[in-house]
Design a protein around this nucleic acid. Sequence first.
DNA 1: CGTATAATTGAAAATGAGTTTCAACAATAG
DNA 2: CTATTGTTGAAACTCATTTTCAATTATACG
Lengths: 140, 140
Amino acid sequence: MSAEAWLARLKDNGYRQTAARQAVVETIAQTPRALTPLQVYHLARKRYPALGLVTVYRTLEKLEELHLIQRVHQEGGCQAFLRAGQGHQHILLCERCQRAVLFEGDDLQALFDHISRQTGFEIRDHWLQISGLCADCRQK
Amino acid sequence: MSAEAWLARLKDNGYRQTAARQAVVETIAQTPRALTPLQVYHLARKRYPALGLVTVYRTLEKLEELHLIQRVHQEGGCQAFLRAGQGHQHILLCERCQRAVLFEGDDLQALFDHISRQTGFEIRDHWLQISGLCADCRQK
DNA sequence: CGTATAATTGAAAATGAGTTTCAACAATAG
DNA sequence: CTATTGTTGAAACTCATTTTCAATTATACG
């Protein structure tokens, strides 16, 4: 999904289109890595130097609310964000360069059925994140 | 594993056995829910009222280092801890009562092989967490 | 176009979880 | 019993995130 589409989604939900917001949205939409709010701030300021960090936080909040971005969980913390995929996708993250790849993973249903039978749980949600080295980083 | 065994593990690693530490360890070892540092603090103070919050953080750090506890990632944040299981286990969490169940889940190898072939990634680690309603909470 | 309005902005102040510092204390080995 | 060294809690500190606020600006409507 493009930055324009994201801005349109924001507009559809009653949010206004501003230069500050546009800089943040374009930054995240065009970066294939998980970014912390501070990283978004620094990158987006190249597009719109007057941008304030507070606006980054507020825009991230709205984008997460509209499911356009998702939170990435890592050892050090869970404050990195990544553009979200369509439907239910899982995250594959490169430990070195932070590049993220989304993939479908519906092969889990059998496992869930098994767990559900064994534990009596009604499974409602799941979160799978895989990390390793991407093809590029493996060669170095 | 019991609280005594945890204390023994701490001792084996050169850490001393103190009343403060004992209160923290017993609290976590006996609670089947994921607890935040502050929750551990309040619960453990019932056993040892002079306990300071700082000691909770320091003890959690050591327990995590010895792999006796693990971090639980949740919507709101990732600062809850839970006793760790043997080997590689996954977490099943009840959304309502926060009860956690650990289960083996080695059925993922086929999925990983598939992903690895498709993306060129060398998979090194993964993290699966499932949430839903436990048998008790389903009936209410 | 103006103009009214309500959302948005960035700076500064406030918050709050987590960490560091430090002097007093206490577990352990000998 | 004593020396050593790890541990303690309080207070000070750090730093990411949130709140407050007055000024600005996007948008709808005349």
